[in-house]
Design a protein around this nucleic acid. Structure first.
Length: 507
RNA sequence: GGCGCGUUGGUCAAGGGGUUAAGACGCCUCCCUUUCACGGAGGAAUCACGGGUUCGAAUCCCGUACGUGCUACCA
């Protein structure tokens, strides 16, 4: 058996959307599971939609996710070039080959002529406004024109396309690894353009030629490609490459959380969560945030994406990339779409933050603090803080809210939660606490707690009633980990300072 | 309109002829913690509908409905 080779073939037209990352991920998992190659191919045949920087961005996203390609435009293998625009000159010959064998033809219709065909069909009440076997003889193409005329037009380089001549009344079937046997009638699809007037191939031609040339063995793509699959299958056959045709797998769609329909790039801002892996800086529309910037760990991101359409049949939901490679199987990919649930996505991240060790978390957390102008000069302290608060951080950015008070005294103290039950006894307690704490030498967490409780007992006050005020003094509000943990990390001086400060506010 | 694909709780889903129809997210109650979080213990779904097949169907078949995708010189 030949080596497994799969490819992720995005168009560099903008940000990389969730579904794209999942397709890339499934490709990657399948390749690694079978000791195969994961190829990145840039499908930039539509020059009008090309967006500067999109290719690099896609590669950056894959790298962030940890699913880099084995071959691609920036790490070429034996099958380059990996950008279809750079392969431009190879497609024409293949298309001509099809014309010669009678499976394709030249079409000289102008866009206006095609438009009028559509208008005519619509006027006749037909819903099927396709360029196909029913009307191709009425159009200007090498099937309807005399040979000399066709040659003359070609000679003067009259703008033309090459279309596949879809056979009439044939059924095409193929096996889909996810959906089983698929059978479709050729009548349903139009004479797809193979070569465009600008000399570029369309997806239909390019995907077949390139998959063949790049020796792709398995083709994963979205479900939206299913209707045009007969064109591709036929092309493989017409080229005489049928025995090397890749195994197909049409992936289910990722749907909008509300209503239905596939999740689109626009849904992000509308529903309040990102659809891109990483921030995309659109040349025209500006910056659109991604999961990375929101505070997602790549491990969590690919984990949640993988589970949107696949599971291993057990109750396990948290998988590392390595585990997914080991357990992945196409048979367990669903055939129906799944609505994206941002709440569940956050849960995945929370789980990953909880299970990640300090070393893993430190760089990201440090970066977030520094971006918010909180200098970290004591990594040891930072590590302790991370360990202490990670279970209450769903997103990486939560470390800021949950941990900034360790470095900066709270700018605002929410005294309102304490004031209603405040009295002179409590005030006196804290005055004495300051004195007692200033006498402690070790500043050990046990000493801090014991001193606090002994003093409370002496004052005939319940420790519990004093802990909330203490907390507010230290962090500014009703949040954070255990108070004594906080005090211990804050240090003696700072703790006393904060008690004094709040006490002065309470007068 | 045509063609394709799909349909188990609000969401993700296991289960593929005989089960009390798993589990997770979210929600609610309680315990722990006199903050929150973590961690525990509970609560709420008869499988879109209608026909078959069968002793027996969420599971197989056929319809219907609904959803969704495609129907570009976009991918």
């Amino acid at each position: 058996m030949s080596k497994v080779r799969v490819r992720f073939a995005p168009s560099p037209t903008g940000g990389l959307h969730l579904g794209g990352v999942r397709t890339a991920l499934y490709n990657y998992l399948f390749a690694k599971k079978n000791n195969g190659d994961f190829v990145l191919r840039i499908e930039d045949t539509d020059q009008t939609r090309y967006v500067e920087g999109a290719e690099q961005y896609i590669i950056d996203c894959l790298n962030w996710c940890g699913i880099s390609s084995d071959e691609g435009p920036q790490n070429p293998g034996e099958y380059g070039p990996y950008r279809q625009s750079e392969r431009k000159n190879i497609y024409r010959d293949y298309a001509e080959q099809l014309v010669k064998s009678g499976h394709a033809y030249y079409a000289f219709d102008t866009p206006e002529e095609i438009e009028s065909l559509r208008d005519k069909l619509k006027a006749e009440g037909k819903y099927n406004v396709q360029y196909n076997y029913q009307n191709r003889t009425e159009m200007r193409n090498s099937l309807s024109l005399p040979e000399e005329e066709t040659q003359a037009l070609l000679k003067i380089n009259f703008p033309h396309v090459i279309r596949i001549k879809m056979p009439r009344n044939e059924s095409v079937h193929f096996k889909d690894m996810i959906r089983g046997d698929i059978e479709m009638q050729t009548d349903g699809v139009d004479d797809k353009v193979l070569m465009k007037a600008d000399g570029m191939p369309t997806y239909h031609l390019a995907v077949v030629v390139d998959d063949y040339l790049m020796e792709i063995t398995h083709s994963f793509r979205g479900e939206e490609w299913l209707p045009s699959a007969p064109v591709h299958v036929l092309l493989w056959k017409y080229f005489g490459w049928e025995s090397q045709m890749p195994h197909w797998a049409h992936l289910p769609l990722i749907l909008k959380p509300d209503g239905n329909g596939k999740l689109s790039k626009r849904d992000g801002e509308r529903l309040g969560f990102p659809v891109f892996a990483m921030e995309w800086n659109d040349p025209v529309k500006g910056k659109v945030p991604g999961f990375k910037e929101l505070g997602f760990l790549p491990e969590a991101f690919i984990n949640l994406l993988a589970l949107l359409g696949w599971n291993d049949g057990t109750e396990q939901e948290i998988f590392s990339l390595e585990e997914m490679v080991e357990k992945f199987s196409i048979e367990r990919i669903h055939s129906h779409g799944a609505k994206f649930d941002f709440e569940k996505a956050k849960w995945f991240n929370h789980e990953w933050i909880k299970k990640s060790n300090v070393e893993r978390l430190r760089p990201g957390v440090k970066k977030i603090f520094e971006e918010n102008h909180i200098a970290i000069n004591d990594e040891n302290k930072l590590d302790k803080i991370i360990e202490l608060i990670k279970e209450r951080c769903t997103l990486l950015t939560d470390f800021l809210q949950q941990g900034s008070f360790f470095f900066l005294a709270p700018s605002e103290i929410d005294t309102s939660v304490v004031l209603p039950k405040w009295n002179e006894n409590k005030n006196q307690f804290f005055v004495e606490l300051i004195r007692a704490y200033s006498l402690i030498n070790s500043w050990d967490i046990n000493d801090i707690e014991h001193t606090f409780k002994e003093l409370a007992a002496a004052a005939r006050l319940k420790p519990g009633e004093l802990m909330l005020p203490f907390r507010v003094m230290l962090v500014g509000g009703k949040f954070g980990p255990g108070v004594f943990d906080i005090a211990s990390l804050l240090g003696k001086e700072e703790t006393i300072k904060r008690i004094e400060h709040t006490l002065s506010l309470m007068k």
